[in-house]
Nucleic acid binder design. Sequence first.
DNA 1: CTGATTATGAAATTCATTTTCATCATATCC
DNA 2: GGATATGATGAAAATGAATTTCATAATCAG
Lengths: 149, 149
Amino acid sequence: MKRLLERIDREILATGGKRSRSRAVVIDRFFRARDHVTIEELTRSVRESAPGIGAVTVYRTLKLLERLGYAKELDFGEGARRYESNLSPHHDHLVCRQCGTVIEFEDREIEQLQDLVTRRHGFHPTAHRLEIYGFCRKCASGTSPERSR
Amino acid sequence: MKRLLERIDREILATGGKRSRSRAVVIDRFFRARDHVTIEELTRSVRESAPGIGAVTVYRTLKLLERLGYAKELDFGEGARRYESNLSPHHDHLVCRQCGTVIEFEDREIEQLQDLVTRRHGFHPTAHRLEIYGFCRKCASGTSPERSR
DNA sequence: CTGATTATGAAATTCATTTTCATCATATCC
DNA sequence: GGATATGATGAAAATGAATTTCATAATCAG
């Protein structure tokens, strides 16, 4: 973890940036956070250890991490973006419409078929997003719904 | 086409709504439009035949069509939503990052694998979205980029 | 037709995100 | 170590899509 932060700092320096205390806090909190955080959630978390930090800095830092390839923007259609770290390997998402739970999955076969389709259209793919929306086991089984977003 | 509009009008009446001239224009233009229109594009089109119609009405009408199952919201991460009609069968999208071209495709195999994954997680799916981003044949081949959005 | 209710458009509002700008912090050069 | 240039920060303002409000107009039911 410390290693990672140092590496990112070095990359920032190498691209003409400067280090900063606030940003270090944001990055640290981001990598420790549960997956798929919103800016708002992350800002709250950041302020636990550094109350003065503004949401703008969180926005900017996540844009930065995205540019460097450490974060990925997600949009589950909730009105606000979410971010996840790019440290874990590629995966897609199952999103429960009732309780908001997000399950990650990875399927080599689907990926391969996607490549095929893409090539068939002369397309050169750079990224894709696959989200399946529905109801998770708990919510589908008529059990009382959990937390709702 | 006329049939379709009449059918929609009947459904609106049946659910406690009223017919309206403005809405008829919006709906007509929507079904005639190229796929994947933004509200702004559609509003422009609508105003060709009825200059007085406000964007708000276009927003409202598309929400209505979505509720009735005739339209589908899309989000290619451009900042503004797009809508497509639900008349053609289900399909997914290849989106060119350079020129904005959207190619539609349909792949039974991918759909089946998605079902499998979903079931494996005890999930009850209601919808999914698969978008592959990249560069279309023209843009990938280094040819001069086309219109860019 | 009359009354009741929905639809409309303009303007105001909301809300996430971005930009601006004066100030602060960090790196660099001496 | 200090001066200086430049990047980073936070507060407030700006932006922009989408939604809500509200007074007025259109449409439906009896």
